[in-house]
Design a protein around this nucleic acid. Structure first.
Lengths: 192, 192
DNA sequence: TGTACATCAGTGAACGCGCGTTCACTGATGTAC
DNA sequence: TGTACATCAGTGAACGCGCGTTCACTGATGTAC
C-alpha cells in the first residue's frame, strides 16, 4: 500500500543505512538485494521504487558509510583518532568501521562514481587528521597533508592486514600494536 | 581425452596461475569457474578433476600469488622494495601485484584456511623486509620486526587507497608520493 | 617388446539455485472539486 | 471541510541469466600379460 512521502524517505534512509552495514560486512557482491531489503524490514519488490539499480544503492550506501564517520568524529586529538582506528574493536566490527578498510580493495574494481565517493571519504579523513595535527601545533602547515596521508595509509593498512589474519593468528594483534605504537610516535614527531 | 600425468600437473599449474591473476583483478567473487577455465585454455567441466570446489582453488591461487612475490624478490635493499611496492606501476597492475593489497579486505570474509595463507604471505613479506633492514644495519635487531610491520602496513594502505581512487583523482598519485617519501624516511631512521 | 584392456583427464550439455530485475496487484496517500 | 478519484509505495510471484557443480561420454594414457 502507498505510504506518506515522509515515511518513504524514512524507509529509503533505512535501506541505505542497512546496506551501508551489510556491504561493509559482506562486500558489495556478498549480499543480495533481497536479503538486504529483508534485513531492512521490507520485501524486495519495492527496491526499485527507491533505486534504479543495485549499483545506485552501492553508491548511496558507501556515501552513507563515510558520512557516519564524520558524525562520530568529535574534536578528537590525533592520538584519540589513531587509538580508535588502529584497534581490535575496529578490526572486529566490520559493520560500523571505516569503508576504506572494509571495502578498499573492492573499490578499485568499482565504477568511477563509487571511486569518487571514496575520494570524498578519504579527503574527509585527511581534513579531520590535519585539523587534529594543527590543533596540537604538530608539523608545519605545509607538511600536514603529507603527514596526514602517511598516518591514514598506515592505519588503513594495519586494519586491512589485521583483519586478513584475524582469528587465525597472534599476528593480527601484533600488527595493530606495532602500527599503533609506530603511528603515535610518527604523529608526535614535530620537526620536518 | 586422457592426458599424461606430467601434462595434468602442468595443466593444474596453468589453472592456478591464471586464477591467481584473475582473482587479484576481479576479486574472489568477481570471476567464475567457467570464465577462469576458458582463460586458462580449458573447458570448465574438467575443473573438478583438479579441485573439489572453487574454494579450494581460491586457496591454491592465493598461495600461488604470494609465492610469486617470493620468487620475484631479489636481494633488494629496503629502498628498492618500497619504491617497487609504493608505485604507480604496482597500483595499475592488479593482476601481478601483492595479494594483500588486491584482496586484503576480501580476505577478512574468507575461511580460516585462506586467512592462514594470508598469514604465511604476510610473514614472508616481513621476513624479506627485516632481512633488507638487517643487511643495511638498520634498527636494532629487536626492533626490526615492529619496524617492518609498520613499513608493510603503510605500503599496503597506500596501494589500497591509491587504487580506490585511481583514474578519478590526482589524490591517487599524491597518496603514493607522500607514502613513498614517508616510508623511505621512516626506513632510514636508524635510532630507536 | 607388443597387445588388450582399464583408467581417467578433458569435453560440453545439463542441473538446481540465487541473483538482479520486472510486473500485476493492493490499498493508503495525495489532490481536485 | 468533505467526497471521489488518481497516484504510487510496498507486496510477492515471476523473469532470464550466470553461477558452482554434476554427468555421460571420448579417446589417449597407463598397465597387465
Amino acid at each position: 500500500m502507498r505510504v506518506s512521502k515522509e515515511q518513504m524517505q524514512e524507509n529509503r534512509r533505512q535501506i541505505v543505512t542497512t546496506a551501508a552495514r551489510l556491504f561493509r560486512e559482506h562486500g558489495y557482491n556478498g549480499i543480495g538485494v533481497a536479503d538486504l531489503m529483508k534485513e531492512a524490514g521490507f520485501s524486495h519488490g519495492g527496491f526499485y521504487n527507491h533505486f534504479s539499480s543495485k549499483e545506485e544503492l552501492v553508491m548511496a550506501a558507501s556515501q552513507s558509510a563515510f558520512d557516519e564517520l564524520d558524525v562520530e568524529a568529535d574534536d578528537s586529538t590525533i592520538d584519540a583518532i589513531l587509538r580508535r582506528y588502529i584497534s581490535a574493536g575496529h578490526r572486529d566490527d566490520l559493520r560500523q568501521g571505516c569503508p576504506a578498510a572494509a571495502l578498499g580493495s573492492d573499490a578499485a574494481r568499482q565504477t568511477r562514481e563509487i571511486k569518487q565517493v571514496f575520494e570524498g571519504g578519504i579527503e574527509g579523513w585527511l581534513l579531520r587528521i590535519e585539523k587534529a595535527l594543527a590543533a596540537q601545533g604538530q608539523f608545519q602547515s605545509a607538511d600536514r597533508r603529507q603527514r596526514g596521508i602517511n598516518l591514514l595509509a598506515k592505519a588503513v593498512g594495519a586494519v586491512v592486514l589485521a583483519r586478513s589474519v584475524s582469528g587465525v593468528s597472534a599476528l593480527s594483534d601484533e600488527i595493530l600494536e606495532a602500527c599503533l605504537a609506530g603511528s603515535l610516535e610518527e604523529a608526535a614527531r614535530t620537526e620536518a
